[in-house]
Every structure is written in structure tokens, then in C-alpha cells.
């Protein structure tokens, strides 16, 4: 693999405290993180600060990462599974500047992975921390708009309405019509939003070796799943949970088992399907796997062969 760990190019920006947040704020976030870990899946309110990035653009994940990260860490940031999407680049640059940490695109080499909308395809290992950016932490919000009410529903384990909603989908469409942010039950107690990851990724949360931390900056909530914790996607005996499948493998690396992005190649209905996890796809290509369109112009443009 051509890219591994990149030492932070320039020294840390000393105008700011290490990792930007002041120490009192870090302590506050750290205390919230420990409670989140102690009660898996429960949303801990925290004094979310106003960050120099817009609310809704990862400020929750950034605050969690800032409270956790140290100079020894190696950080990977992905958005939609890709390391080179604009938001991922922007957040990676932020931490390289304020924390001076090394960054990487290699999943296995990262000690902290901040993500928006995906879990990497390669299984995470013990000791790794996955930090999710969360826009709406409340899985019940679409059923009940009031925070005061949803908090009571969690307190009493009143999740009947959620199952009713899912079953209404089955009655109408024959399937649960939720494809991302698919709710899960954590440690048999709290219904939790996995953030807008595709439901394809839900099974990776179950009994993961890594620690999973969730930060919702605008909504001011932190929650967590410790390693080796039961995470069950809500379903019914007669309609068990299932994940997305594609009719064809990745056009670049031939992976038959990864989550695929659909790329429109022309305005005549032409399209190709490629791995959403760019690092996974590159790794497979480096190992000699070849997809149907790897040698073509369209394939070359996407595979970043020109770089």
C-alpha cells in the first residue's frame, strides 16, 4: 500500500491549547464519556462548545476526538467511507494543526478513527477507538418531537411505538423502509441511533473489539458502545433484519461483500458501483484484485491512479 502513516507536516499551532479545547472542557467531555461507557447506548447530555466548524459538520465527533487524542495517536478521518472527501480532509487538517498528530488512511494503523456515515470494512481491533459524528442522536425523534417525552420513553424502556413504526413499514412495503440510522438495542436496554451509517454497517457494531464513541455537537449528546457489547438491530421474528446487497461486485477491486457507491458515468443511464471504503478498495487492488472497469477511463478517474 503506497500510503501509510503521515507524520504531521508542520508543528502543532501553539496559539491554541493542545487539541484546541481548554482543559476544563476536556474534563467535562471526559466525564461524560466515562458515564456513556458505563451505560452503553444511553445519551449523556454534555456542555457542547461552539467550535470553529459549523454545527452539523462534525462538531460532536471533533469534541470527542479532542478530549481523547494524544500526541502518540494516529488519526484517520473518513466521510462516506472515503479519506479524501472534503469534510474528512477539513477535519484531518484541523487535528494536524491543533494537535500535531500523525494521520493515516490505513484503517489498521489508526488508533482513533473519526467517521461520518460509515464503519470501515476491515474489522476493527482491540484498542482502536471509532468516533462517530452524529447529527441526530435521538432514535425516537421522528416518533416524538419533544425531548422531555423521549427522555421519559428511554427511562421507562417504552419502545413499543418504535416497533409499531417499523411494523407499519412492513405492512405497507413488505420491508422495514429504513436504510440508514437503523435503530439498534444496546446491551438489551437502550434503543440507540447508530448515526446515519447504512444498515449494512449495523452488524459491525455488535461485539466489536473496538470502543465506539458517538458525539452529537449541535444536540449536545455523547453516547458509547464498549467493546464486546451486544448490539441488536430491531427486527421481528417473521421479518428478521437484513442488510443491503448488490447485484454486482465493486467495479474497481471486485469485492463482493463491501458497501458500494453508485457512480453515474454518463447521462445515458450508465453507472458503475465502487467500494465506499476507499482504503479497503485500494488495499484489495494493491493485493492484485481487479474489478470489471479497473483499466477503463472511468475506473482510472475514480481509482485515483492519476495521482
Amino acid at each position: 500500500m503506497q500510503k501509510t502513516v503521515t507524520p504531521s507536516g508542520s508543528p502543532r499551532d501553539e496559539a491554541y491549547n493542545f487539541a484546541y479545547l481548554d482543559e476544563a472542557t476536556k474534563r467535562m467531555v471526559r466525564r461524560a464519556l466515562l458515564k456513556a461507557v458505563a451505560v452503553p447506548g444511553y445519551q449523556v447530555p454534555f456542555g457542547s462548545r461552539e467550535m470553529p466548524l459549523a454545527r452539523g459538520w462534525g462538531t460532536g465527533g471533533i469534541q470527542v476526538t479532542a478530549a481523547v487524542i494524544g500526541p502518540e495517536d494516529t488519526l484517520k478521518v473518513i466521510d462516506q467511507g472515503a479519506d479524501d472527501t472534503t469534510n474528512a480532509v477539513s477535519i484531518r487538517r484541523f487535528f494536524a494543526r491543533v494537535a500535531g498528530v500523525a494521520t493515516t488512511e490505513a484503517t489498521a494503523e489508526a488508533s482513533i478513527i473519526q467517521t461520518r456515515h460509515r464503519i470501515p470494512e476491515a474489522p476493527l481491533e482491540a484498542g482502536q477507538i471509532l468516533v462517530y459524528q452524529v447529527p441526530q442522536p435521538e432514535p425516537l425523534r421522528k416518533l416524538e418531537s419533544s425531548e422531555a417525552e423521549t427522555r421519559k420513553m428511554h427511562a421507562w424502556g417504552d419502545y413499543g411505538p418504535m416497533y409499531v413504526r417499523l411494523y407499519e413499514d412492513i405492512a405497507r412495503f413488505g420491508h422495514v423502509a429504513t436504510t440508514y440510522s437503523y435503530p439498534v438495542l444496546v446491551n438489551g436496554r437502550y434503543v440507540m441511533s447508530p448515526s446515519p451509517i447504512p444498515k449494512f454497517d449495523n452488524p459491525k457494531m455488535h461485539m466489536s473489539a473496538a470502543l465506539q464513541l458517538f458525539g452529537a455537537g449541535r444536540e449536545k449528546r455523547i453516547y458509547a458502545i464498549p467493546p464486546w457489547t451486544e448490539v441488536k438491530s430491531l427486527d421481528f421474528e417473521d421479518h428478521p433484519f437484513e442488510v443491503q446487497k448488490w447485484d454486482e461486485p465493486c467495479a474497481l477491486c471486485g469485492a463482493p461483500d463491501s458497501y458500494l457507491d453508485e457512480v453515474i458515468t454518463d447521462d445515458q443511464g450508465g453507472r458503475m458501483f465502487v467500494c465506499s471504503d476507499t482504503h479497503y478498495c485500494e488495499g484489495r487492488r494493491d493485493a492484485g484484485h481487479r474489478g470489471r472497469l479497473l483499466g477503463t477511463d472511468a475506473g482510472r478517474a475514480l481509482a485515483r491512479d492519476g495521482e
Partner: peptide, 19 residues
């Protein structure tokens, strides 16, 4: 060195609470 020392301690505490 409060900034870095507390970060190192916290990571151990976080790991301990997680496992």
C-alpha cells in the same frame, strides 16, 4: 505537564472503564 499527563491518564481510565 497537566495537559499531556491528564490525557495519558484519561486514556487509561477510558480503556479500563471500557473493559
Amino acid at each position: 505537564e497537566p495537559v499531556l499527563a491528564s490525557q495519558r491518564c484519561f486514556r487509561q481510565i477510558l480503556a479500563a472503564m471500557s473493559e
